[in-house]
């Protein structure tokens, strides 16, 4: 038995030989998970699934899971990403299946690819949101969105743990369109969409601090006095690099492995 002496590495962990990028969704009632909750759920899931995840060294070894800008608590997402360090090469398709099975329903693993340069963070500079606004008429929303787009700058204030922050929503907003939900499933909830529910699709450039769906709604309130009667439900539909037409390039590129779900 190896006794640990002061000054020695407590855990001479095997090195990382492969990194895999994973896209996953946060759906239904699990949209209320915070980033910390999701990180814990994945740490346990990789253990249950037997994924040979590598660990940091030291007295308190942690599994090597790296995260890219998490969707806020309360927002659903179809496009969350993380990177997993592994001590052995694995088949990404197998990883998708095993990890998905080990996670609670609502945290759904969608695809995985072997990581290649450049870094994931360098492949994302914008987000596309779909914001469902039950009880808001399409025409009313369209008017408000047009008013917002007509401005050059719309600043709102957000209270954060580190104080009040001024955020220019209009500057970050690349594109905004309005549709009315058909009778398909609701985006964020997986339950039936409210008939006639207006949906705002917004492409927002990554900024610091990030412009969140609530901020976009705050800006609509500022320019047009739009106040939804019930809380809106936001879903992050995609992340990626902006192209000239305001669309987003898939950050996992062409090496995708689709989940068998």
């Amino acid at each position: 038995m190896a006794r640990v002496r002061p000054g020695e590495a407590a855990n001479p962990a095997p090195p990382t030989v492969q990194r895999i990028r994973v896209r996953f969704a946060k759906r239904g009632r699990l949209r209320f998970l915070s980033h910390r909750d999701i990180a814990r759920a994945f740490e346990r899931a990789v253990r249950r699934a037997g994924v040979p995840v590598s660990h940091s060294h030291g007295f308190s070894p942690h599994p090597r899971l790296s995260w890219i800008g998490a969707a806020p608590t309360g927002a659903a997402s179809e496009a969350e990403y993380l990177e997993i360090g592994l001590t052995r090469e694995v088949d990404p398709a197998e990883l998708v299946e095993a990890l998905d099975r080990a996670l609670p329903s609502g945290l759904d693993v969608l695809e995985a690819v072997v990581a290649t340069p450049p870094a994931l963070a360098d492949r994302i500079d914008a987000v596309r949101w779909a914001i469902e606004l039950p009880g808001v008429a399409e025409g009313e929303l369209r008017t408000a969105v047009d008013a917002l787009l007509a401005e050059e700058s719309v600043v709102i204030e957000r209270v954060t743990p580190s104080g009040r922050k001024q955020i220019d929503v209009r500057k970050a907003l690349v594109k905004a369109t309005v549709v009315t939900a058909s009778n398909g499933p609701g985006l964020a909830t997986g339950t039936a969409a409210v008939a006639g529910c207006a949906i705002l699709t917004a492409v927002v450039r990554q900024t610091t601090p990030a412009v969140r769906p609530d901020d976009v709604l705050g800006a609509l309130d500022v320019v047009a006095g739009l106040t939804p009667p019930v809380p809106a439900r936001a879903t992050r539909m995609a992340q990626g690099l902006l192209d000239d037409s305001g669309d987003l390039a898939d950050p996992l590129g062409t090496d995708r492995v689709t989940a068998q779900v």
Binding site: R29, L30, F32, L33, S34, D37, T73, G74, P104, S105, G106, T189, V230, P231
Partner: peptide, 16 residues
């Protein structure tokens, strides 16, 4: 569900 975005730590009420 519509009440949850208005309370602290809503995840504690969703089960799953």
């Amino acid at each position: 569900e519509p009440l949850l975005p208005r309370v602290s730590k809503p995840v504690q009420y969703v089960g799953g």
